[in-house]
Amino acid sequence: MILSRLAQAAVTFLLLTFLVFVLARLTGDPAPLVLSADATLDDFAFFRRQYGLDRNFVLQYLTFLSNLFSLDFGNSFRYRVPALDVVLAGIGPTLKLTGLSMLISGFVGVALGTFAAVSKSRVVDFTVNLVASIGQAVPSFWLGLMMIILFSITFPVFPSSGYGTAAHYVLPAVTLSFFATSSIIRLTRVNMQEALKSDFVHMERVLGLSERRVVLRHALRNASLPIVTYVGLQFGLLLSGAIVTERVFSWPGLGQVIVGAILNRDYPVIQATVLVTAILFMLVNLVVDILVVIMDPRLRS
């Protein structure tokens, strides 16, 4: 099963390399953007030759592909350093932000979802539904702006932008995790309600296990499989959200890198960012698949 998943991921990835290559070439000529206004025709020709833009399309793609396997994405047009270096500089901050948000939404989502499932109060039911539907509708970048107004301007508690200390993480991470948290709450609640209705929970209650033990050790464990899969799927959404959230908080991550690269038609950096992000995304999905097999004895054969 894992092997076929790997093969599938490889095919998708190859398709993606072609797509990214074609799309980046459709953008138009980067030479006028990179060269200064008084560049001569010779300068243009030299620039195109230097970056291999004068060769035919198929040849360019094959070169691109073979360089890819040696992790060579070419030099950034803008910074004149290897494109991969530009991307790798952004990947750390993005992964830290995304990882922290995933932890927050995982813990808060499962905790609140479990609480909502156990509680029989209609008020809790109502609040959870309201938070979940608001969470689906609030764009993360606007939430970020509101957080800045509230916690950086009105009550200056946390910095509104920058990177470095722990305080810098608070607003971006909370902002980014909001969407995922609200959907994990919803999912956890549904699954816990199912699990709490099942026979083994009745049995354990009959046997006199404490409510706390029944809920936390047994029901939650049984409900956790779809939740783990789902939290993994959220990673893609978090990564998408991070691109926009980083812009709000001037976070020096992949989002800033790719938006800057698009505005400057910096092909190599665009290609490298998209591919590196896609690899990350596929890796996380793969890890989740394996994790589910490890957690569920029924899937082990």
Binding site: V20, G236, I243, V244, I262, A278
Partner: peptide, 10 residues
Amino acid sequence: ALPFILMALA
């Protein structure tokens, strides 16, 4: 299979 904003940006 891909995050949609990534495809949108590309």
